[in-house]
């Protein structure tokens, strides 16, 4: 337990106990455990996924930071990397994967498309940013971000985890039992966010009055 991040400073530990005792807070211990083994979901969408693969290869070697154990199933993953353009057709699948992930879970939007639609924003089948549906923890700019940028983004996520507190994290919040469950959007004549049902109905009705007027 020589990790400097873990031990609190200014506590006098007797010399002969230095190797066996560390004084720290529960939060620090908890965050240290979380941050050092982030398991991402093996999940690639588009161009960015290729740079994600490159980041795992010998030259960049993501595993130096303890985030290389890609899991193909969402039920074993801690983090979902949205690596590419989110299309309307794909979105329900992404939401389902996210809902299947156990808490604590993190979302990283990799690249311009996942962050805000990118060059394809105007497209009819493109969702302008995954943050319209999922709570994003870190945005990584670039089209695609280089492997260095990806690793920098994931280190940012680790820094964010360092600031977590057991008292505040949403997965121990009793009032919010379903955690971060996101209702599944449906594919109708266009992509429909079911959270906005009432609003959509009103606007569609207003469209009619406008046209007849």
């Amino acid at each position: 337990m020589e990790n400097e991040r873990l031990s609190l400073p200014n506590y006098n530990i007797p010399e002969d106990l230095k190797d066996v005792v560390a004084i720290t807070t529960l939060d620090r211990l908890y965050n240290w455990g979380r941050r050092s083994s982030l398991w991402p979901l093996t999940f690639g969408l588009a161009c960015c996924a290729i740079e994600m693969i490159a980041a795992q290869m010998a030259r960049y070697d993501m595993s130096r930071f303890g985030m290389e154990v890609m899991r193909p199933t969402p039920r074993q993953a801690d983090m979902i990397l949205i690596s590419g353009t989110v299309t309307k057709k794909m979105l329900p699948v992404i939401i389902r994967l996210y809902n299947q992930m156990p808490e604590p879970k993190y979302v990283v939007a990799m690249g311009a498309c996942a962050s805000g639609g990118g060059p394809f924003k105007e497209g009819y089948n493109v969702v302008a940013g995954i943050d319209k549906f999922l709570p994003v923890d870190v945005y990584i700019p670039g089209c695609p971000p280089t492997p260095q940028a990806l690793i920098a983004g994931l280190i940012k996520l680790q820094e964010k985890i360092d600031k977590d507190s057991l008292k505040k994290v949403r997965w121990y919040n009793k009032e919010k039992k379903d955690g971060n469950y996101v209702p599944m959007p449906i594919l109708g004549p266009d992509l429909i966010d079911v959270r906005r049902n009432a609003e959509i109905r009103d606007i569609a009705a207003a469209k009619t009055t406008q046209e007849s007027a």
């Binding site: 493109v126 969702v127 302008a128 004549p189 429909i192 959509i200 109905r201 009705a205 009619t208």
Partner: peptide, 10 residues
């Protein structure tokens, strides 16, 4: 990014 027909009820 939505284009729904008029009087649409989700």
């Amino acid at each position: 990014n939505l284009n729904l027909p008029k009087d649409f009820d989700p």
